[in-house]
Design a protein around this nucleic acid. Sequence first.
DNA 1: GATAAGGCTTCCAGTCACTGGAGGGTCAAG
DNA 2: CTTGACCCTCCAGTGACTGGAAGCCTTATC
Lengths: 130, 130
Amino acid sequence: MNIGDVAQRSGLPAKTIRYYEDIGLITPMRDTNGYRRFRDSDLHKLAFLGRARALGFTIEDCRTLLALYEDNTRASADVKDLAQAHLAKIEDKIVQLESMRDTLSELVHSCAGDNRPDCPILSDLATGQH
Amino acid sequence: MNIGDVAQRSGLPAKTIRYYEDIGLITPMRDTNGYRRFRDSDLHKLAFLGRARALGFTIEDCRTLLALYEDNTRASADVKDLAQAHLAKIEDKIVQLESMRDTLSELVHSCAGDNRPDCPILSDLATGQH
DNA sequence: GATAAGGCTTCCAGTCACTGGAGGGTCAAG
DNA sequence: CTTGACCCTCCAGTGACTGGAAGCCTTATC
């Protein structure tokens, strides 16, 4: 398979696939013309990476996950720890965003949104007081 | 005030304040020795920026917000529109993160986390199937 | 055989909002 | 006069791509 094929099948942009090779996540073969030639195992890895990234794992997490995946003597505890740490970060972010949302939503609702200049949003930003 | 003072009072790192000057958000004066000299109005702006950033507004949003703040003929509708658009983005992100959290949480709970290699997390990443 | 379209290559630069560090000048206290 | 705490500028790096330039390869058509 050429890069266009794996891009389509994995759902990842060709640019991203080249980038993943650059940083050593995959190592496709090369044809005599210099084109990358992808094996099924490469496609498999890319799909794996796509799913891990979609769950928000960092690239370094993905590297570790791939290594664990290919290590048949892994302990599932190692995978679980990684996933749990990541889950905690996500939950953290959600809490932060919810706090922003709540404040912002309150401000938006308290603003008339008309032609007059009076604006509680700006007042709040200016003074930190409602 | 020197940069250390405004850093402490605004809660922003000195590096960030210099950066904000670089990109034209503030324009402190200079002493003869080259040190930045901040007026109260600069501190006020920095506090404004700190609060806007804490609500997740981008730097460009902040620039616009500052301009609106200083324009006494603004329409509050302009501020509200900006805030509402930003709120929508935040809500979007929350939905995405919640989806990640739900999937990940399910996977984490289904993984034994022991010394054996069998791991539903890796299986899911590998196949996209539970 | 020429040519055009599309796919592939590499390499460089830009994104966002800082952050770290090197290398050096300034200031106040003892 | 030295020490230590400030301050300065400039450069590079972060994460994970993404866009674009410049150029080679392949396939189809005329």
